[in-house]
């Protein structure tokens, strides 16, 4: 369970160009959820993801994962916590000088897993994302959708409890998007991994998220079960997002 409690993130506090990216945001993500975090561009979604993935610390408030304050973690405990949360980045962020197999094996090597275990786990993940035949090629030779699959396999390597996805479909065409969402759904059901999806696309949320939180201009708007929120939206931003369905596609 991830509890986001009164999280505020201010960049360059006190400076003239101070930016409040998140303003007192609170909601809870339960284990096993496919949780959508939706909002317009610049709403603060990505900042929230960066806080969830421990790349940034909230200026105030806290994020508890299974009761542990993420911002309090240091050293070995922090490295361990990182391995419990997989992150799939918008730009994939693969190692370009390493093969698909080496990319997927990388987190396992960092965790000092024995060689046979690394090989076995890598094969398993290649199969899960359907890239067995691409194991020994380099990312530059792959399509966007295939790179995304490598990124997902890599994020799952250390068997994390949570998978954070930053705009996992915004760069993909509609067919590839469908396949990607099916894969994420599959991962959630088969492996029981909690999935958090940051997106600006209402279709993505509607397709696979059982719960959703709506963020608007750094503030929390509403959250709850996707069907309930979309059937009777309480905030104007949700209505706006629903109204512009299939509209602009800006990240």
């Amino acid at each position: 369970m991830i509890q986001i409690e009164n999280v505020t993130k201010v960049f360059k506090p006190g400076a003239e160009n101070e930016v409040t990216a998140l303003n007192n945001v609170s909601f809870t993500i339960e284990n096993g959820d496919i949780f959508g975090i939706i909002g317009m561009s610049g709403a603060g979604k990505s900042t929230l993801l960066r806080c969830l993935s421990m790349l940034e610390k909230p200026t105030s408030g806290r994020i508890l994962q299974d009761g542990v304050d993420l911002a309090s973690l240091r050293g070995k405990a922090l490295l361990k916590a990182h391995r419990k949360t997989g992150v799939v980045f918008q730009g994939y962020n693969l190692l370009m000088q390493k093969t698909v197999r080496q990319n997927i094996a990388f987190p396992l090597k960092l965790a000092h897993a024995p060689k046979e275990q690394v090989a076995a786990r890598t094969d398993e993940l290649l199969q899960l994302v359907g890239l067995q035949d691409k194991a020994d090629v380099y990312p530059a030779q792959l399509s966007g959708g295939q790179r995304q699959r490598v990124a997902i396999a890599r994020a799952l390597a250390t068997s994390p409890e949570v998978l954070l996805c930053d705009e996992p479909t915004s760069a993909l065409d509609s067919l590839t998007t469908k396949q990607m969402l099916a894969l994420l759904q599959d991962i959630n059901t088969k492996l029981g991994v909690t999935i958090v999806i940051i997106t600006h696309e209402i279709n993505v949320v509607r397709a696979i998220c059982n719960k959703v939180a709506v963020i608007d201009a750094a503030k929390f708007a509403e959250s709850g079960r996707t069907d309930e929120i979309f059937d009777s939206p309480k905030s104007s931003i949700t209505r706006l997002l629903l109204g512009t369905e299939g509209g602009q596609k800006h990240a």
């Binding site: 993935s53 421990m54 790349l55 490295l79 361990k80 990182h82 391995r83 949360t85 997989g86 992150v87 980045f89 730009g91 962020n93 693969l94 190692l95 370009m96 990388f106 987190p107 960092l110 965790a111 890599r154 390597a157 250390t158």
Partner: peptide
């Protein structure tokens, strides 16, 4: 790419 460095951090790289 600084994004790759961040990805490595998220994988538990020191």
């Amino acid at each position: 790419d600084p994004g790759v460095v961040e990805a490595a951090k998220c994988m538990g790289a020191d």
